[in-house]
Amino acid sequence: MISELNLIPVIDLLQGQVVRAVRGDRQAYRPIVSALCGSSDPVTVARILCDHCAARQLYVADLDALQGGATQVTVLAGLLEALPGIELWLDAGLADASAGQALRSRLAPFASRIVLVYGSESLRSREALERCFGAGDDDSQAALSLDRRDGQRLDAAGCWDAVALWPKRLIVMTLERVGSGAGPDLDTLRDVRRLAPGAMLIGAGGIRSEGDLARAAAAGADAWLVASALHDLQLPRIQR
C-alpha cells in the first residue's frame, strides 16, 4: 500500500544541522533526535532517509534562508555532491525568479539536479509569481508551494487564487500539521486537486502511518513530504 504514493523525505537545515519540525514553529526546532538516524549531520541523515524510502528526491528546507539569513550553500553543495543520484527540491525562501536564478548559479555544478521551490509565504508579489511561472511552460526544475497555517493562507503574492499561473508541480503545505502527528490535511489537498487535475500534487505534514498514505493517495496526492514519521519508525522501509 505504501508504494502507491511516492515518498519524498525531508530535512530541515538550521545552522548546518538537521532539526526536527514542530508544527511549523521554526523557533521551536531543535537538532534531530531520531530512532532511525543517530546523527544530525545533513549528509548522514539524508542518506539514511533516502535509503529507507528508496527515494530519488530529497526535499530540503533551508531554515536559515527562510528566516532571512544566508542560504547554506556549502551544506547544500555537500548534499548534492554526496548524493549524486538524488534530485534536490530546495526551499530557501525565494522571493522571486531572480533570487532563484542566483541560487542556482551558486550551485552551478549541480544545477540540473535542483528543483527550486517557490513558496507562497515567500514570493514578494503577483508580478514575482508571474515571472516564475507565467510563461505557461512545464518547468521541470521548479515547483510552487501553496502554504497555509491554522486555516490562513500565507500568500502575499495571491498564489492560491492564481490557478492559471500554477505550474505542473504543486505542493500543498499545511504548516501546523508538519511534525504534529495530527494527520494529513486531505480536505485542502482535494480542493487543490479539483482545480489542478493534471498537476503533480505533493502533500506535506501530518503523516502518521501507511493508512494515512493510502488515504492521501485516494484524495489525489501523487507524493508526500515526510520526516517525523520516518524518524519515529512509523513507516516501514521500502524495498525496490
Rank of each mutant, 00 (worst) to 15 (best):
I2L: 06
E4W: 08
L5S: 07
L5G: 09
L5T: 13
L7A: 03
V10Y: 03
L14W: 10
L14V: 05
Q15P: 01
G16V: 01
G16M: 01
V18R: 11
R20K: 03
G24Q: 09
D25W: 00
D25E: 10
R30F: 07
R30M: 10
I32W: 13
S34Y: 12
S34M: 10
L36V: 06
C37I: 11
P42D: 06
P42L: 07
V43E: 12
V43T: 14
A46G: 02
L49T: 05
C50F: 14
D51E: 15
H52M: 04
H52D: 00
C53G: 06
A54M: 07
A54Q: 14
R56T: 15
Q57S: 12
Y59W: 11
Y59A: 03
L63A: 08
D64Y: 14
D64K: 12
A65M: 07
T71I: 11
V75R: 02
L76M: 11
A77H: 05
G78T: 09
L79D: 10
L80P: 13
L80T: 09
E81T: 12
E81C: 07
P84G: 04
G85N: 12
G85L: 11
G85W: 12
L88T: 04
L88M: 13
D91W: 00
A92P: 05
A92T: 01
A95Q: 15
S98L: 14
S98M: 12
S98V: 13
A99Y: 10
G100Q: 04
Q101F: 01
R106S: 15
L107H: 07
L107W: 08
F110I: 00
S112R: 14
S112E: 15
R113Y: 06
R113G: 07
R113N: 10
Y118L: 08
G119S: 14
S120I: 10
S120L: 14
E121D: 11
R124H: 03
R126H: 15
G136E: 06
D138S: 12
D138G: 04
S140I: 04
S140V: 06
Q141W: 14
A143D: 07
L144F: 03
L144K: 04
L144Y: 03
S145F: 09
L146E: 07
L146F: 03
D147V: 00
R149A: 09
D150N: 13
A156Q: 15
A157D: 12
G158I: 08
L165V: 13
W166T: 10
W166Q: 11
K168F: 03
R169C: 09
V172Y: 05
V172K: 03
L175A: 04
R177W: 13
S180H: 06
G181P: 05
A182N: 07
D191Y: 06
V192L: 08
R193D: 01
R194L: 11
R194D: 05
L195Q: 12
A196E: 06
G198E: 04
G203E: 01
G206R: 01
R208I: 03
R208C: 13
R208D: 02
R208Q: 08
S209T: 10
G211F: 02
D212H: 07
D212F: 01
L213A: 02
A214W: 01
A214C: 01
A214E: 00
R215E: 13
A216N: 04
A216T: 05
A217K: 15
A219V: 02
A221R: 07
A223M: 04
D232W: 04
Q234I: 03
I238Y: 02
I238E: 02
